[in-house]
Every structure is written in structure tokens, then in C-alpha cells.
């Protein structure tokens, strides 16, 4: 399912919509950067509480479909700027990680 459609259905707000046509294959929830580098798969939608600059680098390295900040958390403008430069999709969910992941799972694997 395309990221744009996932965002619309789950009511995720785009902070950076670099490539909304990206295919979301699965999801991954983690706040540990090395864990994401080791175990997230390309095409995963990554749900996290981390919102500093390195998150963009990790998301790009792992080629995730996008990064979703949960519980309404917002990164600072530098992070958004960096993501725009690097072509990394950034989104915000008003739900917490558990509920965002639950809704995403239901959508991707009904």
C-alpha cells in the first residue's frame, strides 16, 4: 500500500512528503537506532519516539518507507529540513506507538 494512502487512512500528518508513492511493505517500532539498522527492512514504516537529526540518517540508511513520530511528537525544523534534503518521508501520528502500530498492522495485514 502506498504511503499516501496509509497516511490518509491512519490520519497521519506529513511533515515531509518527499515520496508519498513509496510502497509500505511492513512496519517497525523501535527507539534504538542500532536495532533499527539491524532489523528494520527496506519499505518498513518506522514508528519512533526519537526525533533528533540522526533519525533521518538511520531512516535513509535502512531505506524505510517513512518515519512516523508517535504521540504527536514533532522534531525541530532542522530535522525536517534535513529529511527534505535527503528525500526521507516524515509523518506525525497523534496516537501512541501501540495504537499507531495496531492500526497499521490491521491495515497492512487485514
Amino acid at each position: 500500500m502506498k504511503l499516501g494512502a496509509v497516511a490518509h487512512t491512519l490520519r497521519l500528518e506529513f511533515l515531509v512528503d518527499a515520496a508519498p508513492d513509496t510502497e509500505v511493505r511492513d512496519g517497525y517500532v523501535s527507539d534504538l537506532l542500532s536495532d533499527v539498522l539491524a532489523h528494520a527492512e527496506p519499505g518498513d514504516l518506522w514508528l519512533t519516539h526519537q526525533r533528533h537529526l540522526n533519525v533521518v540518517a538511520v531512516g535513509k540508511l535502512r531505506e524505510v518507507a517513512g518515519i512516523v513520530f508517535v504521540r504527536g511528537l514533532r522534531p525541530n525544523p532542522e530535522v525536517i529540513q534535513k529529511a527534505r534534503e535527503e528525500g526521507v518521508n516524515l509523518l506525525v501520528s497523534q496516537d501512541d506507538a501501540f495504537h499507531t502500530a495496531g492500526k497499521l498492522h490491521r491495515l497492512l495485514f487485514p
Binding site: 527507539d31 534504538l32 537506532l33 542500532s34 539498522l37 539491524a38 519512533t48 533528533h52 540522526n54 533519525v55
Partner: peptide, 15 residues
Amino acid sequence: ELGFGSGMGIPNMEA
């Protein structure tokens, strides 16, 4: 707190 230091850095480099 920033998500570093999970002790997976060198194992990730090896993998």
C-alpha cells in the same frame, strides 16, 4: 535516551 548505546554497534559492523 537518544537511542544510542544499545550495545549493537560493533555486532552491526560485524554483521
